[in-house]
């Protein structure tokens, strides 16, 4: 299995989630957490990592047991598995980093209904071997985390004049507060999608 082909397939499964099939910018999945908690870079990163944890372990498990799970109850089983890991990550965050847990609030629990996670189980992990599923999950979650982090970075710089809570511009900067409020989330993602469209269009033409 060490052929050239399998290596390129491996890297393909891994890389597609980061760029070509990026869950936020291209597939437009998981918008709710992508907008709700990205008012600062650190929150975006935390949400990305929590989602990574859930997606990675759910994909691994679903792929391992894919031949045992009857088709009729697969969705319910996936949801039970996902909800378990989300509860685990919720409790761990509350125990280890209470401040971030308080900031993210109920949105950690809402990872359960992130269409990205259930979507990957249905479309990929339930049909592919464990190795590929793990790579696919990792790639997708890294793509998701990068998207969340970049939205968070832009919103925090514009709306608060800081990055990871470090002041960037000093006293004279008048923060563009709307950017860390809900409308800013919609607007920043809208403009990022525009940029993505532009780049993808150029490539294809």
């Amino acid at each position: 299995m060490k052929s050239q082909e399998s290596i390129s397939k491996n890297s393909e499964e891994f890389l597609k989630g980061i760029w070509r099939e990026n869950p936020v910018f291209v597939a437009v999945l998981g918008m709710c957490p992508a907008l709700a908690v990205t008012n600062s870079a650190i929150n975006g990163l935390a949400m990305g990592l929590a989602t990574t944890f859930v997606l990675f372990f759910s994909s691994t498990l679903v792929s391992l047991f894919r031949s045992f799970i009857p088709k009729q109850v697969r969705i319910t089983t996936f949801i039970v598995i996902i909800a378990t890991f989300v509860t685990v990550v919720d409790m761990l965050l509350a125990a280890w980093v209470p401040d971030i847990h308080k900031e993210l609030g109920a949105f950690i629990a809402l990872i359960v209904v992130n269409c990205l996670i259930l979507g990957r189980q249905e479309a990929f992990s339930s049909k592919n071997p464990v190795g590929y599923s793990m790579l696919d999950a990792l790639g997708m979650s890294i793509g998701f985390t990068i998207a969340l982090l970049s939205i968070g970075v832009i919103r925090e710089i514009l709306g608060n004049g800081s990055l990871f809570n470090i002041d960037l511009f000093g006293q004279n900067f008048e923060p563009w507060i709307i950017m860390i409020l809900p409308p800013g989330g919609f607007l920043v993602l809208g403009f990022l999608l525009l940029c993505f469209n532009r780049v993808l269009n150029k490539k294809s033409s």
């Binding site: 437009v28 409308p183 800013g184 989330g185 919609f186 607007l187 993602l189 809208g190 999608l193 525009l194």
Partner: peptide
């Protein structure tokens, strides 16, 4: 989606 998001904003 880009336009819809800006409208939503």
């Amino acid at each position: 989606t880009a336009l819809n998001l800006i409208i939503a904003g």
